[in-house]
Design a protein around this nucleic acid. Sequence first.
DNA 1: TTGTAGGCGTTATCAT
DNA 2: ATGATAACGCCTACAA
Lengths: 338, 338
Amino acid sequence: MKKRSTINDIAQQAGVSKRTVSRVINGAANVNSDTRKKIEHIIKQEGFSPDKKARGLAVRRSYLLGIIYDNPGTFYIDQVQEGVLDVITEKGYELIVHPCHYHQDNFVDNCLNFVKRSSVDGVIVLPPVSESSGLAENFRQRGINYVRMTSVKLDDPDKIVISDDRTAVEELARYLAAQNHSDIAVISGPGAYSSSIERLEGFCQTLRDLNINIAKDWIVEGNNTYESGIECGRLLLQKVPRPATIFANNDEMAVGVIKAAHDLNIAIPEALSVVGFDDNLMASRMIPSLTTIRRPVAQMASIAAKKLIGQIEGLPIQNTQSESVIPRLIIRESTSKK
Amino acid sequence: MKKRSTINDIAQQAGVSKRTVSRVINGAANVNSDTRKKIEHIIKQEGFSPDKKARGLAVRRSYLLGIIYDNPGTFYIDQVQEGVLDVITEKGYELIVHPCHYHQDNFVDNCLNFVKRSSVDGVIVLPPVSESSGLAENFRQRGINYVRMTSVKLDDPDKIVISDDRTAVEELARYLAAQNHSDIAVISGPGAYSSSIERLEGFCQTLRDLNINIAKDWIVEGNNTYESGIECGRLLLQKVPRPATIFANNDEMAVGVIKAAHDLNIAIPEALSVVGFDDNLMASRMIPSLTTIRRPVAQMASIAAKKLIGQIEGLPIQNTQSESVIPRLIIRESTSKK
DNA sequence: TTGTAGGCGTTATCAT
DNA sequence: ATGATAACGCCTACAA
């Protein structure tokens, strides 16, 4: 492996001190434009780029960012990665992944340990891990930079990226009402998640406003897994009378509902409409394909990355990005139409 | 953020030189066992761990590993990550991800650039990117450590982890024959991929040996996407006579075939059996659920990680791990039984 | 068994 | 506008 050239090589070739080269690299103002050009030329010619370890050592930074997420539940992790990488690569950062298990009791320590070990400059926390106020509190106390992706404003504006799930489900509720859906049931997510609450309340409230009421026992709580979707679906569909429409808190469960309906010989969408949330990779490929709501995950990730770098580099907090992102309703075959 | 303690702090507290602390950290032999214990105690007490940047700077290593993969097609990326992390974390390495676009013409440069930028100590290359001999050749020339995950032995044993797809599809062929399947068609993957070739040839050859022949025009080539599966499926199913069983090169396409059959009102598995490859997240959730072949991806990833670290640290090449891994047939509802 | 001195590639301090 | 010189935290000759 041909030895990489260093700042010293560049300095020598340019006949200047390395301090001057450093100035050029970092875009300092006080450099003669001729020497600057000369140095820039040599840098390009040599294909030189500053060593991150050395630079990091000097400025006490690693130029590494982490994403923390719970592995099994995560369908959209590569979209997130892409969104983050888009932003950070050009700023000289690299991305380290940390899958973890949200429901293990040592999970906070596990994450803290990760941050220490890897010496990342900051982390982006994805849902549902982002719901953990314990983790966030620990980060805050230790002065660890972080940004959370969630559904409600449960932290400082510069530490959070919000998808406005409530507005999204309101749109869904209005759509269903307009299509004459009435016997509607809901499979909610874990009650501890704010996203579950947002989606459930936003949905029910809007329907109420439209004079459609949901019976208490037509609202059941699942845990966002496929299996749980099957179980809750079966439960709802065996009631007499039974719902004609089921809104599940995520696609995983919605697919479970489809399975349950199939087992009970209930035709979709003729006898039952099903709606999910996420637009994961299965949604469009199921038969029937799934009506659902898509969060612009990559976009959220990009925003999160920008905010995080802002924190790290101590930039003035820009409120430009602070509006929340609104998920979009995607109508497919699993819902009947007027 | 409380200042992290350094090797100097430890040395001072222990009343020794930092050279001695360094010896303890790196497990050198020549240290008085009393001083060692003392130092180890202080290290633990302080929660000290050596700074990777500084160490890396001294040893010319970053303690970062990369995985290179093609984003859209990758369903199993988190399994890979888990397998890799299991191995590397305890050895002090961290994982950086690099999604790329295999079919962009600058992709080799893109990857080389990634390696340079991030200064990873080595990379693991996932299929189908791992098929690129151009990329591997470039790595080799530049002395960049790498390990490829593929289906055939197309590189040095220490640079490759093989899943024996051929053996797996042989098992499939024998199973289908035993279940009296006969009118069998194949949707192969891109002809340029060795995995496609292995699966196609292994499958057809075994069937031939069992006196089941596949007509030339019942073998079509897809590109491993869902859309391509629909297209090829439709093509095959509109032939007269039409196949009663279709083996697709991956689950994505198999799901496409199911869609095509559904559109043509062909019942699965009564009138058509479908088999995929991968056991991706959809396979078990489709209706009907998909008979398929599962590569032990996490296990392969672990092996790859071990080999990579072996290269980096110049360990003697261990042949213990060199046997290939055999994917397993998983029988579900999409295939009819005797 | 232990310590001293110097270097890894970069940025920061303080002169000039 | 530029340059010596000293960090940054660790490791490795070489000595003692």
